[in-house]
Design a binder for these strands. Sequence first.
DNA 1: CAACTTAACTACCGATCGGTTGTATGGTTG
DNA 2: CAACCATACAACCGATCGGTAGTTAAGTTG
Lengths: 112, 112
Amino acid sequence: MAMPHPLPDPLVERIAERFRALGEPLRIRIVEHLMAGEATVQDLTQALGTSQQNISKHLRVLANASIVGRRRDGSFAYYRIVDAGVTQLCEQVCGTVQQEVAELSAAIRGRR
Amino acid sequence: MAMPHPLPDPLVERIAERFRALGEPLRIRIVEHLMAGEATVQDLTQALGTSQQNISKHLRVLANASIVGRRRDGSFAYYRIVDAGVTQLCEQVCGTVQQEVAELSAAIRGRR
DNA sequence: CAACTTAACTACCGATCGGTTGTATGGTTG
DNA sequence: CAACCATACAACCGATCGGTAGTTAAGTTG
């Protein structure tokens, strides 16, 4: 896809919004959890050890960034990842960070 | 690279930090600018229309996230992108956002 | 149907954090 | 010294996080 330069302001703002949505540990956890498949608010609340309201709020941020989607079934709301690229994104950043950690620990080992 | 589940807390925090570093329009602009090659603080200040202090501060955030690196030559400090993955990252998110925009405008065209 | 329970969403509050601007200071280089 | 950069601080503003509480919607029970 062609990338205009400089990027128009609204596009930059939208890009920043997407990154910001992934810039909170709890939301990373939510995405990590949803990678295994759909989950209800309740599932996430129990798995991540915080309040249901808090999860709801973070899910809304992720939904506004078009990262997750909702499906209603009865009294439950099922959330899932709708942006296929996010998985790739997380894995890539995770890989970079892990490599960083590996280099750090290697440096520490080499130092002593 | 293998991905442990659940991810250890410090790793999640570090991942979030990297995303957060890219969650600011001005920093996206800086990265966009650096994709064309090295630049001094002065270059960025003039190109992005803000203060030198502000640029310096944002560069530090990017440096702490291991996204950019410094090189000193004379009295100038040259910044460059050191995390090769960031280019990919930005292009991917940019692509997703552009696709989103395309779908939106298509929907608007179809509606009238 | 009425009463209750459960699941989820929303609104508000206080605290904290981040971004911007401005000023000032210190360090380094030529 | 002059130019360039980094850092620190204050002030202001807006955004965000977590919690409390209230609301809505769906399911369940009598």
